[in-house]
């Protein structure tokens, strides 16, 4: 049962494999450049497992000590996980003890796969999602540790490979678009984010964008729910 789930999960994680090895490596190299031993990127990638926040933490470790502000900043940067959790309430039901790890290791990319993938009927969904998480987690830790060890040997030859993550999100966005005739949620996501980016800039747009999205979707609830029922979905 487990092997079958692993075999179903692995192909879907291949894009993440390249993306995470590369980004994780870059993170490890970055930590090395800040004067940290490879132990730091190794443990941080293993225990935090939230890529963008790990880069931010590298900065936090070099400024004055303030664990409370570090905690609050983390809540803001990672607030999008709240969305993921709400979307996964149903899917994580009846997954037993695996649920703890499914929640603990719910990064953007594992969520992307687990929320949209339909494993074959004879594959246990809980174990499938577990292995998606575990494989992605392993890729990230391996990349970050290798980067921390390799230090200043930056691989110029694979510059641009980080675009795999952009392409992944584009393709999943497109799959959602093709699955339904109700495009308003997708459009609200794009528009609210673009407007926030213009107003607040690259460093501060995530939180206002999320607030706009939630308000926009909540305001349109009656209309969107009616459309859905009207379409017989």
């Amino acid at each position: 049962m487990k092997l079958k789930a692993l075999k179903a999960a692995f192909p879907l994680t291949i894009p993440i494999l390249t993306g995470f090895l590369f980004l994780g490596f870059a993170y490890g190299v970055y930590m090395d450049s800040q004067g940290f031993s490879f132990i730091y990127p190794m443990l941080m990638s293993l225990l935090i497992f939230a890529g963008s926040m790990e880069f931010v933490t590298a900065n936090l470790l070099t400024v004055s000590f303030s664990p409370l502000s570090a905690f609050l900043l983390t809540l803001l940067v990672n607030a999008r996980h709240l969305f993921y959790g709400i979307s996964m309430l149903e899917r994580y039901k009846n997954t037993g003890k695996k649920k703890w790890y499914l929640i603990y290791g719910m990064c953007d990319e594992s969520f992307s796969i687990n929320v949209s993938a339909d494993p074959p009927a004879d594959v246990d969904r809980g174990w499938f999602m577990f292995f998606v998480n575990l494989l992605n987690h392993a890729y990230w830790v391996i990349g970050a540790t290798a980067g921390g060890i390799a230090g200043n040997l930056i691989p110029f030859e694979i510059q641009g490979l980080d675009f795999v993550l952009t392409a992944l999100f584009v393709v999943i966005f497109l799959d959602y678009w093709l699955k339904t005739k109700q495009h308003l949620p997708a459009l609200i996501g794009l528009a609210a984010s673009a407007v926030s980016l213009l107003l607040f800039g690259a460093d501060g747009f995530m939180v206002p964008a999320m607030v706009l999205i939630v308000f926009g979707l909540t305001a349109l609830r009656t209309r969107l729910s009616a459309e859905k029922e009207g379409a017989g979905a």
Partner: peptide, 8 residues
């Protein structure tokens, strides 16, 4: 939310 979050 998911389609909107992927837009984000």
């Amino acid at each position: 939310l998911p389609p909107a979050v992927f837009g984000l």
